[in-house]
Design a protein around this nucleic acid. Structure first.
Lengths: 190, 190
DNA sequence: GTGGTTCTTGATAGATTGCTCTAGCGAACG
DNA sequence: CGTTCGCTAGAGCAATCTATCAAGAACCAC
């Protein structure tokens, strides 16, 4: 794996777990087993450019994770249910460290760095649009599909906050059931 | 107002907006118009003790905010609806800076400081228990009331993440409608 | 007043931060 | 072989971080 990839992987993992401000560049190169200078070779814009690229890449990878799960699920409800179940399992298996790859950064930078805030906003917009389209494809009218997308994604992100702090999968599991219930109610008959 | 109170107020506001790691003690004393040494006079445990006390106090104040709104609302649905509407208004009025007082810290410290993680967990446990009791008092069976509490609180926290990043009140407004719909469906008849 | 306690105050230490800089390695190409 | 170029490598800089310390100010009990 290339040095740039190792730096981005290490950054993504550290940012996700301890945030942007809480992660030093020295810690990143140590984790990535990369020379310090390489950061500024690949990311001349410094920490902020690294942060922006990591946000966009991590966000896209997380969206892809849902696509993969949806691809081999028989229907929409199963796909969503599995995504929450998988998220709960990942949380438990990582000691409640790995939840949303960008939520921690999003809250940190929303009022401190316009560049990074924009990166998180772009990722979230993509997620919302993709989820809306996915629900619309299942027969839910567009405006309702968007509301439902925001509802399901909010349930996921909010449950992550509680599950990580409480060190319990209960919030994510409950949120998963609430999400499928909401979708089932919005689906055109049955 | 006492120096200690000014320090805690300033810390609460800064932690909420830019996180724990992203806020320096120098910045806190500047904002609080307090001498630097006073931090270590009132919080001998340093930044971590200050953080823990701010988390517990901010968490309790936020719970009190809901109690106040609920006190002069005719019923449960109105109270919840008003809380989300109020949250959306606060977000807009502060330039999308002030949302949950401890969510940013909660995600940051969940895997880095057991002391602070415990403080956020205690606050969240209180919120969940209080909300569960509030729903149970309205006639919803206990196990279902707890699930509903987790669902509503997750909707709120998740919507905060999106609203701050997207600089839009839409997520919080949609979450508010979803929360009231879920409660209405769980209420014993009508 | 006097003694004692609480609080204020900022200089300073020591570590760490993001970042810059230069030197050198090693493969590709004429 | 010699030159070039992408990348490695880490020493070092200015700034900032948390934390400590000792001295002074303000207040209370006696």
């Amino acid at each position: 794996m290339s040095t740039k990839d190792r730096i981005m992987d290490a950054s993504g993992e550290l940012f996700r777990r301890q945030g942007y401000a809480g992660t030093g560049l020295k810690q990143i190169v140590a984790e990535a087993r990369a020379p310090f200078g390489s950061i500024y070779h690949f990311f001349p814009g410094g920490k902020e450019q690294l942060g922006a690229e990591v946000i966009r890449r991590s966000g896209a990878m997380y969206a892809q994770l849902f696509v993969t799960i949806a691809a081999d699920s028989p229907d929409l409800l199963t796909a969503v249910s599995r995504f929450f179940t998988e998220a709960a399992r990942d949380l438990r298996d990582t000691g409640y460290a790995d939840a949303c790859p960008i939520a921690t950064i999003a809250l940190e930078v929303a009022s401190t760095s316009e560049t990074l805030r924009q990166a998180t906003a772009d990722v979230f917009d993509d997620w919302i649009d993709a989820t809306t389209a996915y629900f619309a494809h299942a027969g839910i009218a567009r405006p309702r599909a968007r509301e439902l997308a925001l509802e399901v994604l909010s349930l996921l992100e909010g449950a992550f906050v509680f599950s990580r702090a409480l060190r319990s999968t209960e919030p994510v599991e409950v949120a998963g059931r609430a999400a499928t219930a909401a979708i089932r109610a919005a689906l055109p008959s049955a």
